[in-house]
């Protein structure tokens, strides 16, 4: 567990995101400390994917700020943004490897585009990154020839290519069987421990959270309802957190009447 003396590497201040009339994120505020595994936990529609897309700069918020290493990422433009992006890596839910080039070329891509390294150096670095995630010897395969778990690992290798300081994972164990999923959890932890990498993981899987989280941030309906270590959250008396942790369904009767109200527009 990290201590409080570590400075924050990501600071999110009062983030608000709207799609038309609908407010998806409503005043989200939290800090990620350097070197910790920070888990954003939430159910479907809680806004966790939108939050992640804002953190990596694929969306801009309607208001609020995101500071990465003390620099305001939200108001940044052009070259500064690209410079900062070199320091972050992202592992997508579906791995998002470019299908037209080999796995090795995928990992090498950021190095080729952002550095002036020799081809032979890039080749070696690619092999090292793939070894790191347990995928030695697959660099000549096309992404379509890999299994789901291997694609995830290759995605992590690509995110690691530029030796980032922060790595983001979108639903890392989604769609994988429990054994392969647990393997990815171990890998996330290993990356954090080996490189003191700050990791932000978006997930809804409790098993995964238990295995990797230093800090958990619970989202519900676009608001942070709880933040702290897993033990702290387990002790929290917020009804939604308790329900989520106990894996209890919604009260069906209440749900039905809410649904009927939504359909008829009557109270």
């Amino acid at each position: 567990m990290m201590t409080d003396t570590h400075e924050p590497i990501i600071e999110v201040e009062n983030l608000v995101v709207r799609y038309g009339e609908h407010t998806v994120l409503d005043g989200v505020t939290f800090q990620v400390r350097r070197g910790e595994v920070f888990v954003i936990l939430g159910g479907s529609g809680s806004g966790k994917t939108t939050l992640l897309r804002n953190l990596v700069g694929l969306m801009r918020p309607d208001s609020g700020r995101i500071l990465i290493k003390g620099e305001d990422f939200t108001s940044m433009n052009g070259d500064d943004r690209i410079e900062l992006r070199k320091k972050i890596g992202m592992c997508f839910q579906g791995s998002a490897l470019l299908n037209s080039i080999s796995v090795g070329e995928n990992v090498a891509l950021p190095l080729r585009e952002h550095t002036k390294l020799e081809d032979s150096t890039i080749e070696i670095m690619t092999k090292i990154k793939l070894e790191l995630v347990g995928l030695g010897g697959v660099e000549d395969y096309l992404p379509s020839e890999l299994s789901g778990g291997m694609k995830k690992r290759a995605g992590i290798a690509r995110a690691m290519a530029m030796d980032p300081e922060i790595i983001f994972y979108d639903e890392p164990s989604a769609g994988l069987d429990p054994i392969v999923g647990a393997g990815i959890d171990v890998l996330i932890r290993k990356m954090q421990e080996t490189f003191q990498l700050s990791s932000v993981v978006v997930t809804h899987e409790m098993e995964s959270v238990k295995a990797i989280a230093d800090t958990v941030c619970m989202l519900q309906g676009g608001r942070v309802v709880g933040i702290g270590s897993l033990e702290e959250l387990e002790r929290a008396d917020h009804p939604y957190i308790q329900q989520f942790f106990a894996r209890r369904p919604y009260d069906e009767e209440a749900e039905d009447s809410a649904y009927a109200r939504a359909l008829t527009g009557l109270d």
């Binding site: 579906g94 998002a96 470019l98 299908n99 891509l109």
Partner: peptide
């Protein structure tokens, strides 16, 4: 090709890597 890349988040992946999809 571009549509499939968009659906598969490949375009987003390029952006996050700091590679401009227009250039690339």
């Amino acid at each position: 090709e571009i549509g499939t890349m968009k659906v598969g988040e490949e375009i987003d992946a390029l952006k996050v890597m700091g590679l401009n999809p227009i250039k690339y």
